[in-house]
Design a protein around this nucleic acid. Sequence first.
DNA 1: AAAGCATTCAACCGCGATCTT
DNA 2: CAAGATCGCGGTTGAATGCTT
Length: 315
Amino acid sequence: MRRPPSSHHHQNMLKKGPWTPEEDIILVSYIQEHGPGNWKSIPPNTGLLRCSKSCRLRWTNYLRPGIKRGNFSDQEDRMIIHLQALLGNRWAAIASYLPERTDNDIKNYWNNHLSKKLRKLDAGLDSQHHQLTNSQSNIPRGQWERTLQEDIQMAKQALHAALSVDHYSNPVINTNSNSNLLIHHHEPLIPRPPSAASYASSTQNISRLLRGWMNQESRRSGHHSYLPAAWSMANGSSPSEDHEGTLSYSSYSEVSQPEENTIGQLTPETHHSHCRDHSMAGMDLHDHEAPALNLIEKWLLEEGGLPTADDLSLL
DNA sequence: AAAGCATTCAACCGCGATCTT
DNA sequence: CAAGATCGCGGTTGAATGCTT
């Protein structure tokens, strides 16, 4: 849809531009068999005229089950705002706290919506003669404070929910090594939950997938998440357009069955798992206590560490 | 109604990190 | 261990789409 296929490609040349449904099917069925990862082996084995990088991207940002697109909730908004204030533009790290969202999606959403929203808010406050501009010493007051308190509550809840899903026995000190960045001592990068690891299996999923595409093709308006819908149908969850309003990580819980290795961000080889049983959607996540409070959560809980207006108006 | 401008977002690129040989 | 291959991230692009004039 976006980006047209590269105009000239000799036989051997790799295709670029948007993925077609046919290509998606090929990719998905291959990954069903072999698991995600090993991207370099995909083009030769499937005949896809795509580079491995493109395959990975397509999978992780679009085809992978358990991802939600569009319709960001207020809670998600706030969580993203907070996390970005804390972490900067480290979208992958931020995304690890929002298991249903991809880093790309969050990044896009930030750039297109949130940063503007914040700028506007900031400007509004500015014109209200509020000088919140020295970064170090100011404690947010009044409106800001109230808002932030609420936000922190939200984020805290969300974080609890997110964390409580995995029962990591060990707290994963294995920090990911981009510690050369801004906020070195908080290296909260928890492993991306294994939601990406599981994928629907069985061929009927693919036919459902296709149906989703059909629908999509017929009315190419609205940015619906037709694909995840198709997946969730395939996974046995309610076929209704479940853009669940309240912050629920249900689709995460459907999908994730953390068992074996939980370290690091999905090491592909371990994901030949046959996660067919995604039926734990009813599980009440909110009542679980997070096993490992990490630094972010501490930060969220602390009063002193509130993000400043400056923090929030970055960019 | 159509032309021009703005927004959206899937996909690309470059590069540093990590893995493999 | 070096060198090359691959992965993963973040910034950026640009056609499609939406909006305004």
